[in-house]
Design a protein around this nucleic acid. Structure first.
Lengths: 111, 111
DNA sequence: CATCATAACTTGTATTTCGCAAGTAGTCGT
DNA sequence: ACGACTACTTGCGAAATACAAGTTATGATG
């Protein structure tokens, strides 16, 4: 979930970027989760043609369709978790035009 | 999550009912989760005045506000998980009038 | 072209959580 | 008074996770 969240909302694409996130996931667990996500058809893995040592992960449409669920989770956190990192603009946009936000999030995550 | 799901959508209120659910949660884990949910302010626990040996659990508004998140999860499952238990009518209603469904679910869970 | 840095993992081990089976405590019905 | 019911606890083996260190392949540097 944390990986998909980072890919959907923070445009992260690489192993090193996931490892940096504030949840401090252990590297063996991260590797394990990435292969499980690949097996479940949620992410694809491919070598970066411009930099052979980098692998670029991408979300499948099955994973992009988790956007509404994650957005609802963010809204709930914004309401009840004082330490939440959700930004104001995001929450406002979600309440104003939810469908459009889902489209925007998916489109950004694809690019 | 499974406990909140059962309370929101299946009107379960008691320990024995949670233990029956198809995920077959171990009783020690169930007890642990219920106290954690209580500590986090998601459920309340009170003895049934009509039957002293039964304890009735209820969702707080903080937990009721998880309804949109859980509904989105159900919709995603209905789309991608062939073994999902989500019923047709529910999915139709969610797509037709989401806000109303959220209200209905909350209202049923409170009664 | 040898060496160093980087990125993506593996491996080993201690710690934590979980699953299963069994047992306990306070009602309640008869 | 006694058995059944409901909500838990307890003990222990198995599995998952966290932490630290090592490995492999590629790209950059002097």
């Amino acid at each position: 979930m944390l990986i998909i969240r980072d890919m959907l909302f923070k445009q992260k694409r690489r192993y090193g970027q996931f490892a940096e996130s504030e949840e401090n996931i252990a590297t063996n667990i991260l590797a394990d989760r990435l292969t499980k996500l690949e097996v479940e058809g949620l992410v694809t893995r491919q070598a970066d043609p411009e930099n052979g040592r980098q692998i670029v992960y991408a979300l499948t449409s099955k994973a992009l369709d988790l956007a509404p669920t994650l957005i609802e989770m963010i809204l709930w956190s914004a309401k009840y978790d004082p330490d939440t990192a959700a930004d104001r603009g995001f929450v406002r946009k979600a309440k104003k035009d939810r469908e459009q936000l889902v489209k925007d999030v998916k489109s950004r995550a694809r690019s």
